[in-house]
């Protein structure tokens, strides 16, 4: 599998000369299998450019939404395949106790917030993510609800002999007991991330920022590193960068944490455009 980051920013787009390397677009990640099958993880503003770069031969795209906060769906209306009658677009997302996924997405994809109704799109189908593993083409996908306000899932994607765990918005530190990680059955997201080859994980805050934002559903760099170590991930990509963190600050946060922790796994910066090969070549 190949994963390419098209949007890595959390909360709100943050374009500007100070964010050119890490990028200003909100979450969107393209995962391609060797046979050409595609998954798109989240539909933040990065999905616009992602959509423009898809092959003309594409006939199906599956979009896996972690949740419906604006930064994860804002790009949906600007994703060209949803208007293309030759492409089947399947949108997967967490169920809620109140309304089906389509009705909740329609709150955004309808006037006055957007000129086009979701129901008028030619070949778009919405699905609630199953509570057990499911297959999309060559991908075997496991989801579970994770620690973040409102129904929010993480994804474990297995394919081509590799595993990608995608947990863009996740606060596993709420599971800590007196600062210690409890047994694995008490850690949010453990089953999704265990032994992943690539873990794309929330790292929105500094330690000081996290102290002011406990319960908001995000992680500090320290917590992302600790979680990666706890689950035995082979490579961590800090993700969902705070919009106030510029390139220089993100470089510093990453290098400081690596120096402090000396992780036993690889760490790569979550920059827009970064590409990761996972599984058998």
């Amino acid at each position: 599998m190949r994963a390419k980051l098209y949007g890595t920013r959390g909360s709100i787009p943050a374009p500007g000369p100070e964010t050119t390397r890490y990028g200003g677009n909100t979450p969107a990640v393209l995962v391609c299998a060797k046979n050409g099958a595609l998954l798109v993880l989240d539909a933040g503003t990065g999905i616009r450019r992602l959509g423009a770069q898809l092959s003309a031969a594409t006939t199906r795209v599956d979009i896996l939404l972690t949740h419906l906060h604006m930064d994860h769906i804002q790009g949906l209306g600007f994703f060209p395949p949803i208007y293309d009658p030759a492409i089947d677009v399947h949108i997967w997302g967490p169920a809620s106790s109140a309304l089906p996924l389509e009705a909740r997405l329609s709150r955004y994809l309808s006037p006055p917030l957007f000129p086009v109704h979701l129901r008028d799109l030619p070949r778009v189908t919405c699905h609630h993510v199953p509570r057990s593993k499911f297959d999309v083409g060559p991908f075997c996908i496991l989801t579970s609800l994770v620690s973040h306000p409102g129904p929010t899932v993480g994804y474990r994607i297995e394919g081509d002999g590799g595993v990608i765990a995608y947990m863009s918005d996740h606060e596993p530190a709420l599971c800590l007991r007196r600062g210690q990680w409890p047994g694995r059955e008490w850690v949010s997201g453990f089953d999704l991330a265990v032994d992943a080859d690539l873990l794309i994980h929330d790292a929105q805050y500094t330690d000081a920022e996290y102290e002011r934002c406990v319960g908001w559903g995000h992680s500090s760099y320290r917590h992302a590193f600790e979680f990666a170590a706890y689950v035995g991930a082979k490579e961590l990509v800090p993700f969902h960068h705070d919009p106030d963190h510029d390139d220089e600050k993100l470089d510093r946060l990453l290098s400081d944490e690596i120096r402090k922790v000396k992780p036993g796994f690889a760490v790569s910066p979550g920059c827009e455009g970064a590409v990761f090969e996972v599984g058998s070549p």
């Binding site: 579970s144 609800l145 994770v146 709420l174 599971c175 059955e185 008490w186 997201g189």
Partner: peptide
């Protein structure tokens, strides 16, 4: 296998 997040958070709440 990890417990469902609702159970994890209930335990966490109980701890507080």
């Amino acid at each position: 296998m990890a417990h469902p997040i609702q159970i994890i958070l209930t335990r966490q709440l109980a701890g507080y």
